[in-house]
Each structure stands twice: as C-alpha cells, then as structure tokens.
C-alpha cells in the first residue's frame, strides 16, 4: 500500500509516456529508417543508402513542392504578420466595438481548412466568382483565373491561408500590446512623443517574444499545410500547387511509393526540428536565467 502510494505518480504517467515513446518517437524512427530502403508498395527493411533522397531531389514534382512551400511560406507568414499587427494596432485605439470586431476577425480560425478552401474555391471561380462581380461593375476585360493558372494557383492558397490565420496573429499581438507597461507609454506621451513614434520605438520592440511566437506558429502551419491545398486546388492544375505535405500523401496513398513518402516526410520533420528546437531551447534557457 505504502509502495503503491509512492509509485502512483509514475504509474499514472507511464501509459502516456510509453504511448508517446512508441507512437511519436518510435514511428519517427521507423519512417526515417524506411527512407533508407527501397520500399515501394510494401515496406522493405534492407538498408540501401540514400537512394530515396536522390530520387526525391531529382524529382521535378518535389522541386515544385519545395518552391511552392517557399513562396507560400514567405507570403503567408509575411502578410499574416503585417495584417495581424495592423489590425491589433488599429483595435488598440480604444475602439468602442472592439469585442464585436475581434470576434469577426478571429472566427475563421474556428473553421476547418476544408471549409475555408471550399468557400474560396467558389469565390475565386473564374467564371462565376470575383471575376464576374468585377465584370458586372463595368470592367469588361477583367480576368481573374489564378485558380486554374498553373503559375498563379499557389497565390490563391496564400489568399485563403491569410484570410484564415491573420485574425489569430491579431489576437496574439493584441495581447502583447496590452501587456506593455502603461507607465512608460504615459511618460513618453507627456514628453510629447508622437503615437507613431511610441509604437515604433517602445511598444513594438518590447513585443519581440510575441513576434517570435507568431513566427513559429505560422511557419509550423505553413509546413504542415495540407487540407487547404486539397480543398482549394487539389494540388493542381497538374501538380502546380503541390506542397511537401501533399507530395508525401500522394506518394503514400495513391502512388504506392512508400520510400518516397518516408523520405519526404523525413525532410519535413528535419525542417520542423530546425525551427522548433532552437526556439524551445532558447525559451527554456531564458526562463532559467
């Protein structure tokens, strides 16, 4: 009984510990291992070296996926950050209807990316969507066919992604703005410093950790992006809007090429580790100081 009491905390934590050990770390190891084999339809377990990675980086489809991730990642993160910061600063001006506006700006975050993709697919429909609206207003030659244009389709993913996630950045920044020391701001105002200057030199610099958090969350969202592309473009036209996540899925479940699926997933994992680990490390270190 005594023994049971003493070891109860460990016993309670044990199932989760072993589950995570197997289903997270064991599975990551399995995928990494299989990425060094010649697995096709079924997993094989003889190590064959880096052949899958050679195939991966020679594949034009993977190149498209990586290029798209760069375009999408930079634009999605950049625009969502700027828009989120702008909205937060605008809302911070003692707005009477702040609560209602905040609710409106943030509701897309409660939606599934599949719903968002479905809605924007309809709005951006070349025949009946925005294009028709602008034509009806008198601009007869207006064309907006990004959704079906292989060179432009990836930008429609940016449009829908920013719409969905910018409100979340706003919420983060707004919380950050509210946590800046009121005294310093009041002192600066008494000294006649302009509002723009106060934001530029006092408030925004003090929010560096929040910028960092927003950056991490958004880049994480960008790397994992899958549902939005599937619902909006299905990866097409052709594979013009493929991202690493859709490439991996196609290899795993429709092409029957487990080796490629495993190697692309491993590359994704490495990218996430490269972003998250320094962040977690610095977070833990600053807390200890």
């Amino acid at each position: 009984m005594e023994w049971l009491q003493r070891h109860m905390p460990k016993m309670v934590l044990a199932p989760s510990f072993f589950a995570v050990l197997l289903f997270v770390y064991g599975f990551i190891a399995w995928t990494a291992y299989v990425s060094f084999t010649r697995s096709r339809l079924l997993p094989k377990y003889e190590i064959e070296g880096v052949i899958q990675y050679e195939r991966l980086f020679e594949s034009p489809r993977w190149e498209v996926a990586i290029t798209n991730l760069a375009i999408f990642g930079i634009l999605f993160i950049g625009i969502a950050m700027i828009l989120g910061l702008l909205l937060a600063i605008l809302l911070d001006q003692k707005i009477r209807t702040e609560g209602a506006l905040r609710t409106i700006y943030l509701y897309p975050m409660a939606l599934s990316f599949i719903v968002t993709g479905t809605a924007w697919k309809w709005i951006l429909n070349p025949g009946l969507g925005i294009e028709a609206v602008v034509k009806d207003m008198g601009w007869e030659s207006f064309e907006f066919d990004w959704l079906t244009d292989p060179d432009m389709a990836i930008y429609t993913v940016v449009i829908a992604g920013v719409w969905q996630s910018s409100g979340f950045v706003m919420a983060l920044f707004l919380a950050g703005l509210r946590s800046v020391d009121e005294e310093i701001i009041r002192a600066a105002m008494v000294d006649g410093v302009s509002t723009a200057r106060i934001y530029r030199s006092i408030i925004i610099p003090s929010m560096a950790p929040i910028f960092m958090s927003a950056l991490i969350v958004l880049s994480h969202l960008a790397i994992k992006s899958f549902d939005l592309v599937i619902a909006l473009t299905g990866g097409g036209p052709g594979y013009a809007t493929d991202l690493p996540a859709t490439y991996m899925y196609a290899m795993a479940f429709s092409r029957g090429d487990l080796g490629q699926a495993a190697s692309s997933a491993t590359v994704m994992m490495m990218v996430v580790v490269a972003i998250i680990v320094p962040y977690l490390y610095s977070e833990l270190r600053t807390r200890r100081d």
């Binding site: 289903f23 599975f27 995928t31 994992k224 899925y249 997933a265 994992m269």
Partner: peptide, 26 residues
C-alpha cells in the same frame, strides 16, 4: 518527470506526415 513533459511537448510540433505510414500499419 520534466523529461517526460519535454518529450510530450515536442510531440505537439511534429508534422504528422512522419507518423502516417507506421500508424496505418499499426
């Protein structure tokens, strides 16, 4: 116990693509 917490926490961040195949088999 803190190590276990760190292990659990890191699990929040993995791209799920990396566990799809073994999970399907499991």
């Amino acid at each position: 116990s803190n190590m276990i917490f760190a292990l659990l926490l890191f699990g929040c961040f993995i791209p799920f693509q990396v566990i799809l195949l073994p999970m399907a088999i499991m």
